[in-house]
């Protein structure tokens, strides 16, 4: 047998051995494991998973996806759930999942320590979910770009449909992003459905792209790929904190907000560990990890310090967001269908 052939064989054997090593089931931690579907920023997700693993010895298996994707996943897997707990992401899909009985009801002993909006979120879902943070909607503009164009700074939702912003506004697609769905629901609640769709149609002329992820418009605005981006204020603040010229705006008409939530998945394979994670995630110690990882939402436990970077709720006009109506499947399906056919697919 010639030299190269035997070397080739060695190569194949080495590859095979390496492969076999990987096929052998990974050692399961003695403390069990928990599969987390995480709906917030990657860094925060990772910090939550690793800190929990460090403190409890429970092996964590974390997947980060947008809230809409996780909801879709839960539905796809409902006959055979793979995840144990769904942590984070905007509250509406959590409410929808609760309504469709995809998640498990559970009353935490810590419920009393939570801010009232977090408790109300739990009540709405018959305790199938619970609020873990609050984030206000808004938009941001690129200061440098605006100065260069010598345009007046937008301050209200109404400013965004001005003709000078044609092709300059970016938002996510509400079909895939919880952020954009919150914006759609906010506009409908602020203006009433018919005027809201008239507004959205005019806004459509100014939109340069409907992105998939909710935080993408904030990033684009920071990089100057878009002049204005509609997003949650904490996402915009995060971009601004990284030295991008972004000014965060809280719209003058008032704005909606999300209640980031957490749900136990029904039929989970590791219900015990999931509950442990649930309890741990409500503690101030765990909630502090948000600000440490540049996520500046308002945490739900009253004992958790509010990060100084978080939007000051006293200076924001929050609307009375009707989560019961706008978190229900029926309303959501109807409004999304209408938005897709009348706004997104409309002529430009």
């Amino acid at each position: 047998m010639s030299g190269p052939t035997s070397r080739l064989r060695m190569l194949a054997v080495a590859a095979g051995l390496f492969g076999l090593a990987a096929l052998v089931p990974r050692p399961a931690a003695a403390q069990g494991s928990v599969v987390i579907y995480c709906g917030v920023d990657e860094a925060w997700c990772r910090a939550m998973a690793t800190t929990f693993e460090k403190q409890t010895g429970i092996h964590t298996d974390m997947t980060r996806q947008s809230a809409g994707e996780i909801y879709a996943r839960l539905r796809a897997e409902k006959d055979n759930p793979r995840g144990d707990i769904w942590w984070g992401g905007t509250g509406d899909p959590h409410l929808q999942a609760a309504e469709e009985n995809l998640t498990q009801d559970y009353k935490s002993p810590q419920l009393g320590q939570l801010r009232d909006w977090a408790q109300r979120q739990a009540e709405r879902a018959k305790f199938r979910t619970v609020g873990i943070y609050l984030g206000a909607l808004g938009f941001g503009y690129n200061k440098e770009d605006l100065a260069r164009r010598k345009l007046a700074a937008p301050a209200c939702w109404a400013d965004l449909i001005k003709p000078e912003f044609k092709g300059e506004v970016q938002m996510a697609d509400p079909n895939s992003s919880g952020t954009a769905w919150t914006m759609l629901a906010t506009i409908v609640q602020l203006m009433g459905e018919e005027p809201a769709f008239a507004y959205l149609k005019r806004l459509n002329a100014n939109i340069n792209e409907y992105t998939k992820a909710g935080a993408a418009p904030a990033q684009s605005t920071g990089k100057g790929e878009s002049l204005i981006g509609i997003a949650f204020q904490h996402d915009l603040i995060d971009v601004a904190k990284r030295n991008f010229p972004v000014q965060v705006v809280s719209p003058c008409e008032g704005t909606g907000y999300e209640i980031g939530s957490m749900s136990l998945i029904r039929g989970a394979r590791h219900p015990e560990e999931a509950r442990k994670f649930y309890e741990w995630a409500l503690t101030p110690e765990a909630q502090k990890l948000g600000a440490l990882n540049r996520s500046y939402q308002i945490p739900s436990n009253t004992a958790t310090p509010v990060p100084p970077e978080a939007p000051d709720l006293s200076r924001i006009k929050l609307i009375e967001y009707d989560f019961a109506t706008y978190g229900s499947s029926a309303t959501r399906t109807r409004l999304l269908g209408r938005w897709t056919s009348e706004v997104k697919n409309a002529p430009r």
Binding site: G68, Y71, N175, S176, K212, R332
Partner: peptide
């Protein structure tokens, strides 16, 4: 991709 992962979730 978006038909599967989007919130519309229409397999």
């Amino acid at each position: 991709f978006f038909a599967v992962v989007g919130a519309a979730h229409d397999q």
